[in-house]
Amino acid sequence: MDTSSKRALVTGGSGDIGGAICRRLAADGLHVIVHANGNLARAQGVVDDIVVAGGGAQAVAFDVADGEATRAALEALLEGGPIQVVVNNAGVHDDAPMAGMSGAQWRRVIDVSLHGFFHVTQPLLLPMARRRWGRIVSVSSVAAVTGNRGQSNYAAAKAALHGASKSLAREMASRGISVNVVAPGVIAGSMADAAFPAEVVKQIVPAARAGTPEEVAALVGFLCSDDAAYINGQVIGINGGMA
């Protein structure tokens, strides 16, 4: 199906991986809605990059953890046409050993990654099904597969996306909609560079390097294409051999 008339919503689209995904989908011909939690200016910067490169994009800001605010924002976006590609990339870290983790730390991380997935995806399902074509990709983490010290909240939130996505894939597959998860390992960018010095990366990653946001974006772009129509309900690692 021609993607030139399709719109894609990328949550957390102003970050390192999110921005790369936005630029990739725009290069593939989609009109990209770049989402930010609060920093609309940063999302607009990604939009400006896309427009300069000849693509189509717009910026939007809302808190995916707020169900009412998200639904209102989506209703406004749907007035401009269908959204047939959704990339759930929004997520936050608030690391601590569970023995010292507060309830607020546990809840906020799960609110954004897991409840945010529901708040964003659920209202778009029936409009997507009516057009009998859709792509839903959620960005998880290798931590959801292997576990990671200090990240029980983050690993729990991301692992929950695996079960939800596998179940949703079974519900929507007959309508031409695929639902998949990508689980990146150590990816270069502002968050990983501080946490994983080069010598640590060489020890924990068999490929002996961090991945790039563009490599993650290439996988997401493929999953959103017609060529990937029969890939459904999968969790695909992109981690240089870590898991």
Rank of each mutant, 00 (worst) to 15 (best):
N89I: 10
A57H: 06
Q58K: 14
D111L: 03
M101S: 01
P82E: 12
V64A: 00
V120W: 05
G81N: 03
V85S: 13
G116M: 02
V112W: 05
F62V: 10
L77K: 02
D63Y: 10
D63N: 08
L78I: 02
V112Q: 03
V92P: 03
V109S: 05
R71N: 14
L78H: 06
A104L: 10
D94V: 03
G67F: 09
E75C: 14
V109E: 00
V120M: 03
P97I: 11
A73E: 08
P82A: 15
V120D: 10
A65D: 01
L114A: 07
H93S: 15
H93W: 15
N88T: 09
G56L: 14
A61F: 12
W106H: 04
G56K: 15
A65W: 00
A61L: 02
V120T: 07
P82C: 12
A76H: 14
N88L: 01
F62R: 03
Q122K: 08
G91D: 05
S102H: 10
A65L: 02
F62S: 01
R71Q: 15
A104R: 07
M101F: 00
R108W: 01
A72I: 13
I83K: 06
A65V: 05
A90F: 07
G67Y: 02
A57K: 03
A99D: 11
V109M: 07
P123G: 09
A99H: 11
H119Y: 07
P82D: 13
S102C: 07
A69L: 03
N89S: 12
G103L: 11
E79K: 14
I110R: 06
A59K: 06
A72C: 14
A65F: 09
A61M: 06
H93D: 14
A90E: 10
V92C: 11
G80E: 13
A96D: 03
V85P: 11
F117G: 00
A104Y: 05
A72N: 14
S113M: 13
A61D: 00
G116K: 08
E68A: 15
I110C: 12
D95G: 09
R107Y: 00
V60H: 06
M101K: 11
P97R: 06
V85A: 14
R108M: 07
E68T: 15
T70C: 07
S113C: 12
D94M: 13
R108N: 12
D111E: 04
V64N: 10
A99G: 09
V109R: 03
P123F: 05
F62Y: 13
V85D: 11
E75D: 15
T121A: 08
G91R: 06
N88R: 02
V92Q: 12
V120N: 08
V92D: 05
T70L: 00
F117D: 10
G67H: 03
H93V: 14
Q105L: 03
L74W: 08
F62G: 04
D95T: 00
P123E: 06
D63G: 07
A57T: 02
Q105I: 00
